[in-house]
Nucleic acid binder design. Sequence first.
DNA 1: TGGAAATATGTTAGCGTTCTCACGCTAGGC
DNA 2: GCCTAGCGTGAGAACGCTAACATATTTCCA
Lengths: 347, 347
Amino acid sequence: MSTNRTNKKPATLADVARKSGVAAMTVSRAINNSGYVSPEVRKRVMAAARALQYRPNMLARQLKGHSLKAIGILLPDIANPFSTELVSGIREVLVPHGYTTFIATTDRSSEEERAALQSFVDHRIDGVIVATRGTRFGTESLQSLAKQNIPTVVVGRDSGVARIDSVMADHYQGAFDAVTHLISIGHRRIGFIGIAHEDRTSLRRYAGYAAALKQAGIAEKKEYIAGPPDAPAFATQEDGFQAMMQLLDLPKPPTAIFARNDFAAIGALRAAHTRGCRVPQEIAIAGFDNIPLAAFTTPPLTTVEQPIHEQGAQAARLLLDRLAGTAGRARTVVMHCRLVPRESTLK
Amino acid sequence: MSTNRTNKKPATLADVARKSGVAAMTVSRAINNSGYVSPEVRKRVMAAARALQYRPNMLARQLKGHSLKAIGILLPDIANPFSTELVSGIREVLVPHGYTTFIATTDRSSEEERAALQSFVDHRIDGVIVATRGTRFGTESLQSLAKQNIPTVVVGRDSGVARIDSVMADHYQGAFDAVTHLISIGHRRIGFIGIAHEDRTSLRRYAGYAAALKQAGIAEKKEYIAGPPDAPAFATQEDGFQAMMQLLDLPKPPTAIFARNDFAAIGALRAAHTRGCRVPQEIAIAGFDNIPLAAFTTPPLTTVEQPIHEQGAQAARLLLDRLAGTAGRARTVVMHCRLVPRESTLK
DNA sequence: TGGAAATATGTTAGCGTTCTCACGCTAGGC
DNA sequence: GCCTAGCGTGAGAACGCTAACATATTTCCA
């Protein structure tokens, strides 16, 4: 025995048609404001629809070749502030166009990523915005999307796939600016925190760091690069803490640190405090991302801000182009990053 | 002129049937392992399906009265660590049961909440888990879900609606424990940060604070309650910062602070440092939520941990019950919170 | 005044699936 | 040899909706 009390199925077009004494087609026209319907009939139909709490079955509609007006957003996780801002930027553009957004997360696993994308496709969303970190498997998934002709935009990295647009911030430039800033206030021994030395080449933020050193004529020192092994897609507070401890143990530790992201920077800050090492007097620390909490650390953290909201909006606009069918070959939009100096790197 | 190159529509059952020389029905049976199909035919069908990259159209299936095996998760936003852990707990339970999860966010707006829920319903998801903060409009939306007989579970607060289950942590108890801890290490002048005095009654965390004071025979002081006006949903670092500044301006400021959440606590911490007020020596600060960064502030933050992951899992289990049709009247599950003492309240 | 154009409704078919029913076939039991 | 029972397969309808066509009425200008 079931527990239904009000458990009638939702009303259908036919129900509304019966109740208002017209054909189903007429109801469809009235509901969708398409074709001719007399004001009087329209009123009658609308009343019946309201009375029956009628809601069109989008899925049946889709079967007839209509779009669901829904797009999927694939995120690595939803913990970081990046995700929020990004989604907000995306929705700002998409919602006015009548699109619904659905988010799926991957827990940073390729398998989950594959499954989530498949799920989007199975549910016949109109397009996808992918913001996961790049992995080999991930690229395969993207290729599969491209093959199925599903409009896709990648945020935060190069898609690496023809016909898939990318939006990203210029992490290279942001890192370059941050490290140049450290150099300009007198530092010569500058460490990089957040990635192991052997994985460093895959990271644009590292490349910017290296380029800034080079331009200033400072030699890179292998022992100044510290971070978790096996190239994680991300660095945590814990990673930053460990890495900083390692650097502080050096006979001649760096006088300034550029951390891969603010989480790592905050871990580094904690390590410095733990060792009784004053920031910024004895060691300067800069991060990347300008998470909301960065302004509230002790001392407030110098960092690099990337235009996250705007990246989301831009991604959405590119997607709209693809959905409209205009838009030919893949485009890549690169956005500028801005240095946000705070007290953690005071002179 | 369109840009199609590989733009064939996805293969259908009929395509697979044609290719393997059987009827559509047989293909359906083979794909779904239902009914009788000879091993030989099954093999042939599967091969054809693979070759054509066939994927069943879930929407068409749904038309025939089948479930989409998808559930919607409604979140206030996705910035806070709460959301991630919650989703992770939910998925841990739901995914093994074959369900896909979709997330929608409301940007803390009732209007968006209504739209998002409607969107879930329109897309015929099987059930909903709602984790937004309670609002009057929100409750209306919930009632509407109940009326449509859509299995729903609310996380983080009481649903206030018959036939809708709730899962929450005992914030009252958590706050009580935290404040009792502050009292036990000698504090008598204890401030509350994160909500304006006139809004305080709606907040269980405040109630726990008040109860702890009362039990210790300490009179509540109105001027020790500080927080943003008419913003009951959440408190940010900025709110905490402002509130703390206000408390420090009192002729006789509190010696300990209990903040509504860790973000507010971190803002308070910053304010204390800004004023040159040492933590915990001159003022102790405790937060709530145990966000990952709480262990990495200076000094590390005493806080209260709520079992977020487990709340998600529990919510998912309740939802599964409702989906199965077992489950009668609304149930409410309350989970215990745990005090996490750190250096910000050292004796 | 004729008839084309505009208005207002209904009928039919079909989207991709699966359900129901029906049809054969092979065994096995009387 | 005929009937049931279990297999294995197919034909047709139906799910809720809308495009395309068909029909009926009114309007309006040459």
